[in-house]
Computed example of a mutant assay.
Amino acid sequence: MSVYQLSRVANRTELAQLAAERIAACINNTLQQRERVQISLSGGSTPEAAYKLLGQLTLAWDRIDFFLGDERWVATDDLLSNARMVRSSLLANPNSSKASFYAVPTNASSLEIGVEAYERSLEQICNSSPPVFDLVLLGLGDDGHTASLFPGTAATLVRDRWVTVGEGKGIPRITFTVPVLCAAREVMFLVAGAGKKVALQRLLDPLEDPVRTPAKLVDTASTISVLADTEACAGLA
């Protein structure tokens, strides 16, 4: 059963600052042990602010591989594209642009072809099966989903692949599967806003059913970090 370490901050600004610091520390610590570091990014407005701050830091950018844990099946310049958000925030600076970013191939001729192509690139670059990321950043939906693992969808049940087709809020998606998320050396949830209060309570509840809250499916050998603002933490002991 996962062990969670909750870090509470006052607001979204402090959340972004702490997240950027933690990500940078993971990068630096990993690069003391290995030549490259592999990080899976999450989409959404909450991590975007952290990415902007991270991109301004002095890091060994040319030794970092960034991936996306999930992506909507939209063009890379679409306003809903996670890849577009990453490029305009994290990779917007001359230094941070030296990092390698492997976006989900939403220009493939079909969802399944996109899944297969992304899966192959993960195995090749991470050189492991399942791919093992040094850090996986995750969000938490108000319905308890994480990545594009939504309650009641087939994607939550996939255990024999590293990438699969997801469906959420009426939009097809490509997402990492549970085995990849569980294989990560470090996992960090970023949670902000009053709308996430119930979902956060469920995530931290050891008795919560993962069927209702798929974020509970993420079960790693190491402690899972949860960074949350005051609004999301309202009602917690």
Rank of each mutant, 00 (worst) to 15 (best):
M1Q: 11
L6D: 14
L6G: 09
V9C: 12
I23C: 10
A25M: 11
N29V: 00
L31M: 08
R34H: 12
I39Q: 04
L41M: 04
L41S: 04
L41G: 03
S45W: 08
T46A: 12
K52A: 15
L53E: 14
L57Y: 10
T58E: 15
L59T: 05
F66S: 07
G69M: 01
V74S: 14
A75N: 14
D78P: 12
L80M: 10
S81M: 02
M85K: 11
S88D: 09
A92P: 05
N93L: 11
S96H: 11
Y102W: 11
A103K: 06
E112P: 00
I113L: 15
G114I: 02
V115M: 03
E116C: 12
Y118W: 10
E123A: 10
Q124K: 06
I125G: 11
C126I: 03
P130V: 09
D134F: 05
V136P: 02
L137M: 15
H145R: 13
L149S: 00
G152E: 07
R159W: 00
D160K: 06
V163P: 10
G166S: 03
G168H: 14
K169I: 06
G170Y: 13
F176H: 01
L190Q: 04
V191W: 13
K196T: 03
K197I: 04
L204H: 11
P210F: 01
T213Y: 13
D229W: 01
E231W: 02
A232F: 07
A232L: 14
